[in-house]
Every structure is written in structure tokens, then in C-alpha cells.
Design a protein around this nucleic acid. Structure first.
Lengths: 399, 399
DNA sequence: GAGGGTATGTTCAAGCTCTTTACTTAGTTG
DNA sequence: CAACTAAGTAAAGAGCTTGAACATACCCTC
């Protein structure tokens, strides 16, 4: 896996070359329009090294040259840009209620996307359907003349570091599923990077990796849907995901938020999910599992018991966010998942609680930004694509 | 700082050389008695590279050769060991009630240690005292003929990544203290690595870095004393600490564990510290802040209200541990701090709760080991020394 | 508009590190 | 004691970064 770690960090000259090429590529990707000179300064490399590295990346089609920049007294530098037209990445998410798929350009731009309702079935038939939908995506005109770099799959459950096994997906009823092994036979022609990972972790990765401009040094994505999960990505160069030995990192839905509280489906009492989650809201308001939660509540948002339920759930979410702040202290928190569509009745209490309490310990005014994703439909699938790109860039691909 | 991250990861040939030397040194440090051939296999380097690297580390006094190993059919390899007699590291901890100092050998062996009661005073006078005690340590015969590699200081409060500033230490009444800047004038002759970091984070680092044998891929240290803090170290080669942007990572004492619960000194309600911490136990049992908590309770452990208070605090601790398990999922949890001296009345409920619930999500039998440190007096100071060693090994020191 | 100034980018020999290959060393085995 | 095996070493060779000189492109001034 991406953060599966090199057992010992040692390397040869080729490793060094790749390292420098990757660094150049990442820099240009993050700051479009950088010149060779800028790169040399920031990466502490010599002009000559950068020159040859850039040349090779140009030849391979990873980079392209842009316009001459304004001169600052001497010869103007030539802007460099990521070549966004040559490659593409595939990302898929197997959700509890939907399948979502994207084909992305290296910049993160979605070239082609597709989602459709999905009734949880066996891993095998799901893999077969995912493969079919991926092939449709690959045949679409927007990507057909590009080179594929690989495919990533986001799944709703814990996946341990180093092994491509979905340990358990309670909402799908799956257990110990090697999804890539099921998918691969259907797509034998698909070369490049193959990976699978937890949905919230990939979303966190994508939100950080595809960002341009000012890049936070770490980011937590909170996925609030049927259950509550989170993922943390760290490091601006090539972010690493915190997975935990068993892949349980980020399972904040099962952190205890109310000792002696209600029983959770996991068997324990007082889990955060008993206070805030799709299923707890359904249980509180008597909404059938077959009905779409958002639609069912859309017309009832003014009812007192709905308002009260959503407000309480929102407050619990705020506490969860504060707990993340005081446990992992990311530079930014991004909130996504279907529950964010419930709007301000649900979200305001969460944001308010977090804002009111995030300064308790330091008393300073510096703020950890908390952002709600506008549309989280493809966030995880796009994050899977982001991981594919990261591995392509840092893997042996660039000669 | 140690995890202050290289802005861009690029390097020259010298960087590569240092990388390989560091890798060799780490491997031998972790597995004493390794041969050149073992190293070459594990690090994927050629025999020649390893040979010259080892030679240079031998010349510099980092390594020493041991006995010939048993032959496995051919020429026997020569065992390599960390030279534990040439260098030493200094670590200090400024605690709420004590100063603790150690001088360590590179293996982690404590060569000389000292602790004494400490009445919280100004940062300046504290620095002056720490400097004096460090100098006493340096004059002791056990270290006087060794070369010093640097000094590390552990402090009870958040310290952000990249800046050596103690943001706030509520239990000392300190704020924005640049402790190293205060310490340095007193010890101008002390060259090498200088660092300061949070107490629990350094303890976590030390527990992971000085371990030999089977090394967990990540470790959380929970420091249960006046307040509750934690630190997470990750990565077996050279572990990294999770600090968080503002240094608030691991401030689990201020995660919410009881919505609407008691007010905490931080101003918020329901913090874990209101349920489990030195001060909450004092408050519950009416023990004066001037008296030593452990001594005061030592004779009262059979009293019903004491037993009840400790049991409840222990249960809360168990929930905190489970929350860490479901948020960061470390490969091992180590429990330390003065409260561990309260014994089984306090600890058993915590361990029992954790054991009973850690398998909820996966249902497997693999267990995250939870260990209580026997004597946590010097754990943080030793961790500071560990960081010094790590930076010396991975810094420019080894030519 | 010609010339000096300045910063960018390129070229090429030189230097350093890892690698390859052949060889030496040290112990086992029959 | 000769054949075998594996560890370690030495020296030539390959590859990447470097340093210095050079070419390029624009600005500013006269």
C-alpha cells in the first residue's frame, strides 16, 4: 500500500534520481508555472540537476513548458506545468447505497464520472459490475486517447496497512474481501497501479493531494453517512495516510462519547455513532432503511422532533471534531458524507461547538479551518485516483 | 524539530551516502550482531556498499566488530554491534513536581540519572537549575570520557512542529517559553543536537526507539498524572512523532468523554480529565494539592469512596484507551505516569475495559498489546535522549 | 538603438558514490 | 587435504550530481 513502508530506507543512484524527479514533478504539480530556477532554489538542487530532470520529465510527457515569465532584471524563466492531457487515473467507490466512479486527469480534474444505485450484493458480483462500469469509463472519448496510470478502489471498512484485504464492512456484510483479486480478472488489460483503501482515508488523501495553492500540512476528512469514519493525511510533499495496524485508525464512530449510553451495533455502549450517524437518526425518527434518509427528512426539517434530533446529532458531531482536534490536531478538517446534505439544522451546532471550543487549550486566535464539502459524491473515488497518481509519481514509473 | 519536514525531498550524492550509513547504523542498533551480509540482504544494497559503509562507521567509532558467527557452510560472517562506549546523550524532563535528568548510552542504557523535587518557578530560574544539574551529570565518571551528542528537554505542554516554543503549560503557569534559548547560555560548551518537545511524545518516541527485538510499527504512550496526555510514534526505521499543527495532538485529557459533564479547568465541559486525572481524583477525595497524591492514597486504598473513585477513573481511562485504539490504532499502547502507581484498583478497570472491547470492530483475536510501565520516572527524559540519538544518526553528523 | 547589467538555462568535464567482477578469506564437508 | 560454500575486499566501471564556463533573453540607461 502507499504507506506500506520500506523495510529499510536505503537506496542506490537510481533511487536518488527517481527521488529528485518525483520532487520536481510534485513541486510543479503543486505550484503550476514554476521555473527551473525556482525549483533549484526550493529543492536545494543545482541548476544543472534540475535542468536534466525537467528535460527528462518533458520527454516523458509528464511536464510541458509554458510561457516565458516576466523578467526580474535578467533572463526570464520559462513556466513549467503538469501535462494534464497525457495520463488519466481511475477511481471507484463501493458505497453502502451507491457505486461511484471517476476518471481523473493528473490535476485532479474529473474527466468522466458515473454513479448509480447499488444494492449490496456479493463481493464477486460487485467486482464484476465495477469492472464493467470502469470499462465504460475507459471507452469514453474524454479518456480514450490518454494513457492509464492505474485504478484505485475505495471501500467502506477497515483495511490494514500492507495487505489489500477489506477486514470487515458491517454495512455491506462483507468480511476479509480481497477486492482487487476479484476485480483483476475482469480487467486483465489494465496495467499500472492497483490499490484499494478505506473510503474516508482516500477522501482525506485526495482532498490534500489535489489541492493547489496553500497546502495544509495535514488534513482530516470526516465522512458522516450511515456510519461515521475519518481519515488523516499528513505531509505536503507526498502525503501519508494514518491507517493503524489493523486499519482501525479513524473509526471515530466507535469512540466512546457517552459512557453507559445506548448500545451500538458493534456491541459496545455509548459509541459516537449512537449519537450521530445515519442509522441513529433513522432510529430516532423512525425512518425505514429502504427510504432515502435525506429525501425523507427534506420535507420534515421544520418538525420539532426532527429539529431536536438533528441538533443533538450535530452537537455530538461537534464534540467528535473537537476530539479529533485534541487527538491528532490536523491543520484542516473537511466534512463530507451524505449527512452534510441535512443542512444547517444539523451542521450549525457542530460548527458552532467546534469554533467555540477549539481555542480552549492555547487561547490563541489561530484557527483550524473547518470546511464542509459542497458535494461529496465523488470525493472518495477521486481520492482513490489521487493515490494512484501519487504511487505512479513516486513509484518506478518515471524511469 | 525531528519531524519538521524537509520542505522538498530531494537530495545529492552526499545525502544518499548519509542515508545508507544511517540505515546501516539503525539496523545494527536494532538487531545487534548483524553481519555485513545480513545488512546487504535486508537493505537491498550490494556487499561492496555495505562494506565501505560499515568500514567508515567503524572508523568513526559508531560500530564495533564482535565475534565470528557460526558458519552456515561457508565463511562465517563477523558480528557487528553498536559501539555503546563512545557516545552519550543527555535528557531532561521538567515535570510539574520534579526535575528528572538522565545520561544515556546509545543503546538506551541509563548511565547516570538524577531527580529531585521541583517547585514550579520562572522559566529562567528553572533553566538555570536544569543547566546546573546537567553539568553535574556531565562531570560524573560514567560519562566523562564519552563524547556528548546533544541534549533534549521534555516539557509538560504543547509544542508545535518546527518551532521550539512551549505554547502553554497550564500546570506550570508558563506560556510561550523558548526553553532552549534560556538553557543555552548556561551551557555554551554543549555542542550537538539541541531539542525540546512534549513529555508524552518524547516518552512514546523513547519507548519505540530504544526497543530491540520485535519492534511494533507504531506505539502510543499514555501519560497519566496531574493531567492526561499521550504521544504517538510511528515507523520502525526512524520513528516520527505526530505533533499536530499546534502541538495539540495527544491532548486526550481534553477530549470530550461526557457531554454536559463537569467543568474542566480548560473551560469546557465533560473533558476526560474531569473523570480521570490527578487533579480530578484530588478533587473527588479532597486531597490537598500540596500533599503527594500517591502517598496520601497509599494508606486509604481500602476505603470505599477511594475504591469507587479509582474504579470510575480507571474505567474512564479504559474508554480513553479504546478511543485511541479507534482513532489511531497503534500497534502497542504503553501506560505510564504517576497514576499507574495507584495499582490495580485503578488499573484493572482500565485494562479490563480495553480488553473487553478492543475486538468489537474486527472480531478477530489479534490483540493490541497494552503494557503498564513498571517505573515511569525517567521515561520522558530517556525519550528526550532517544530523540537526540535519532537526530544525530540521521543528521549530518555521520560525515 | 546600442551597450552594459542581470538572471535563467545549458553544456561538458570532473567528482563522488554505488555497482560489477574478480579475488581473497575462513570455515565446513567428505 | 582437497572441494565447496559463503563472507568480505579491491579495483575498474557506470551513473548521477556538480561546478564553471557559456549562451540566452530581457531590462535599463545613455
Amino acid at each position: 500500500m502507499a504507506t506500506s513502508y520500506q523495510h529499510q530506507k536505503a537506496g542506490d543512484l537510481n533511487f536518488l534520481k527517481r527521488l529528485n524527479r518525483s520532487a520536481i514533478l510534485e513541486m510543479v504539480r503543486r505550484v503550476p508555472g514554476l521555473t527551473r530556477s525556482d525549483i533549484a532554489t526550493q529543492a536545494q538542487l543545482t541548476k544543472a540537476t534540475v535542468g536534466s530532470g525537467v528535460q527528462s520529465l518533458l520527454n516523458q510527457g509528464w511536464l510541458k513548458e509554458g510561457e516565458l515569465q516576466k523578467s526580474s532584471g535578467g533572463r526570464p524563466g520559462r513556466a513549467l506545468h503538469l501535462n494534464d492531457d497525457r495520463h488519466y487515473l481511475l477511481g471507484a467507490e463501493v458505497g453502502v447505497h451507491r457505486l461511484r466512479l471517476v476518471a481523473c486527469a493528473p490535476s485532479g480534474k474529473v474527466l468522466e464520472a458515473h454513479h448509480e444505485p447499488f444494492v449490496p450484493t456479493s463481493p464477486e458480483s460487485t467486482a464484476s459490475l465495477v469492472a464493467e462500469l470502469l470499462q465504460q469509463l475507459m471507452r469514453s472519448p474524454a479518456v480514450s486517447n490518454r494513457e492509464n496510470l492505474g485504478v484505485g478502489v475505495a471501500l467502506p471498512g477497515p483495511i490494514a496497512t500492507g495487505e489489500a484485504v477489506l477486514r470487515r464492512a458491517p454495512n455491506l456484510g462483507w468480511r476479509d474481501v480481497r477486492f482487487l483479486d476479484l476485480l483483476h480478472p475482469h480487467l486483465p488489460e489494465l496495467k499500472g497501479v492497483w490499490l484499494m483503501d478505506n473510503e474516508a482515508k482516500l477522501a482525506a488523501f485526495g482532498e490534500l493531494y489535489f489541492r493547489t495553492g496553500k497546502i495544509p500540512e495535514s488534513l482530516i476528512y470526516v465522512s458522516a453517512g450511515t456510519g461515521i469514519g475519518s481519515g488523516m493525511a499528513e505531509g505536503s510533499h507526498s502525503p501519508l495516510l494514518t491507517r493503524g495496524v489493523q486499519g482501525l485508525a479513524g473509526e471515530i464512530g466507535h469512540t466512546i462519547l457517552q459512557p453507559g449510553g445506548l448500545y451500538c451495533h458493534c456491541g459496545n455502549r455509548g459509541c459516537a455513532e449512537t449519537l450521530v450517524s445515519g442509522w441513529s437518526i433513522r432510529a430516532n425518527l423512525g425512518i425505514d432503511e429502504k427510504d432515502d434518509l435525506i429525501q425523507a427528512l427534506g420535507s420534515r426539517l421544520q418538525e420539532p422532533d426532527v429539529k431536536r434530533t438533528l441538533r443533538r446529532a450535530g452537537e455530538a458531531l461537534g464534540m467528535l471534531l473537537l476530539n479529533l482536534h485534541h487527538t491528532q490536531n490536523p491543520a484542516e478538517i473537511v466534512l463530507g458524507g451524505s449527512l452534510t446534505q441535512l443542512g444547517s439544522t444539523f451542521l450549525d451546532p457542530a460548527l458552532t461547538y467546534f469554533e467555540a471550543n477549539q481555542h480552549r487549550l492555547l487561547g490563541t486566535t489561530e484557527r483550524v479551518p473547518l470546511r464542509v464539502v459542497e458535494d461529496s459524491t465523488f470525493v472518495a473515488a477521486r481520492g482513490a485516483a489521487a493515490q494512484v497518481l501519487a504511487r505512479a509519481i513516486h513509484g518506478p514509473e518515471l524511469s
